[in-house]
Every structure is written in structure tokens, then in C-alpha cells.
Amino acid sequence: MRMSDAAALKVAGVTLSFGGVKALRDVSFEAKAGSITAVIGPNGAGKTSVFNCISGFYRPSSGQVLLDGQDISALRPPRRAALGIARSFQNIALFRGMTVLDNIKLGRHAHMKTNLLQAMLYSGAAAREEEALRRDVEERIIDFLEIDHIRNMPVSVLSYGLQKRVELARALAMQPRILLLDEPVAGMNREETEDMARFILDVKEEWGVTILMVEHDMGLIMDISDHVTVLNFGEVIAEGLPAEVQADPHVAEAYLGSGDPAALMKRLHEEAEH
């Protein structure tokens, strides 16, 4: 099985408006190949809108989304998936009626070739493709994410933390070159958060996948991201290394209304405690 090679993603001057409301104004940033980039910002800053522009749900009114320099702004979501853009959702979007295994298998859809006739006959080619997929899912993904004990369960009976992990597994089955994670640890307890942080780092290191994530857990961001972009009211107000962003008075102001980075850290730590 081909090891995915990381891709660089560039968002260049993206503006998105709904009627008169500008959700994003001239947003530009870059996720370097093989890095972890975090997009942070207060609620309503436009973080998920950026993700929707990248995965193709929203068509920006101007600006471009570039994958390894190639403009993908005009492509429909399925085409972008085939190019290696995988994504998890803020409020888990698994298929509830299916088992964990089937959910993960679905991730590979765009890379498979079985056509309808082969499927109906379950021909040799279809059987081999299914077998290879099963092997890959079992031995690389389920093993890696430590979810072998739940593989045959329907996802609807799983805890929130495990569902998030299954969603990551499904995204990995897409053989992604860039992975968009929308609040991967939201609502998780400390132990689950630590597990997820470890998985995200491993995905970057071992799978060689570029990661772009939206997250509120500042501790996680400071720990694992290489680069941080801060959005507020649909505009990029700061970016840089995690430590630089943390010390930026503009960021503290966006979150608190006052420009004191120390107060910001205190507040965020308090939030993390809860």
C-alpha cells in the first residue's frame, strides 16, 4: 500500500459572503507539507467556514484554495476527497447505522475501482479489492488507533471519545495527504485528549500527513502544533509559532476584549480544567 505523501495547502485571499454578511475576508494562510497547523479564534470567527471552503461545501466569492500549488477552488467535494483532502467534523458525522469497520471502509471509496457489474457478481477483482482493503484497515488503521475491540459494533453505541477516534480512522482510510480536523478533542476528558494528541502526532510522523486543525484546547495547540493562525470576525489577526501567537496582545484582545496575554493564558487554563 502506498504511503501517502504529505501535501502543502494554501488558502489565498479567500472571501466568503452569505448575502451581505462576510463570513471570511481575504483570509490567507498556509499549511506546510508535513506540519501541524492550528486555526484558532473565538466562536463565530469563521474557522469552520474556512474548512468548508477547503473541502468544497462553500464556494468562496473570491480567492483560491491551492493543494500543492494546484488550484482546486472549482472542484466538487468528491473530487477534492480523491485528491487527498480528508476531514473530520466538529459534531461527528459517522454513519450511525453501520459498524465501525464499515464506516472506516467507506473512507477508501474514492480510491477503489469495483464497478457495478463486478459488485453484483462479486467477481475476482472485487473480492481481491475488498480483501486488500480489509487487510489494510485491520492491520494499519484499526491496530494503530487501538480500536480492534469495537470493530464490529455499530457506531451509535460508542462513547463520544471513541466515535471521534473512529472518525479519525475513517479519515485515515481515505489515504489523505492533508487531514482537516475540526475540534478533534472537543468534549473529551484528559485521558482521551492525551490519546488523541498522541494519534495526531503519530499521523504526522508515521503517515506523513499534513494536518490542519481547528481547536479550542489551547494546551493541545501549544503542545503539538508547528504553526498557528488566529481568526477573528473572519479575518486573520495573527499567525506564527505557538509561543509567538500566545504572546500576541491582539490575540488576547480577540478572546478577552483586553490585550493581556497573561490573563488569556489564565483563562484558557481555567477552561481546560473544567
Binding site: F95, M98, K105, L106, M112, T114, Q118, A119, A126
Partner: peptide
């Protein structure tokens, strides 16, 4: 058989 392959999974999805 359709539901043993990617096509059936896509339908359910």
C-alpha cells in the same frame, strides 16, 4: 453482493 463492496457502502452512506 452489491452490499459487500464499495457501491453498497456508498448507498448506505
Amino acid at each position: 453482493n452489491i452490499f459487500r463492496t464499495r457501491i453498497g457502502r456508498a448507498f448506505i452512506a
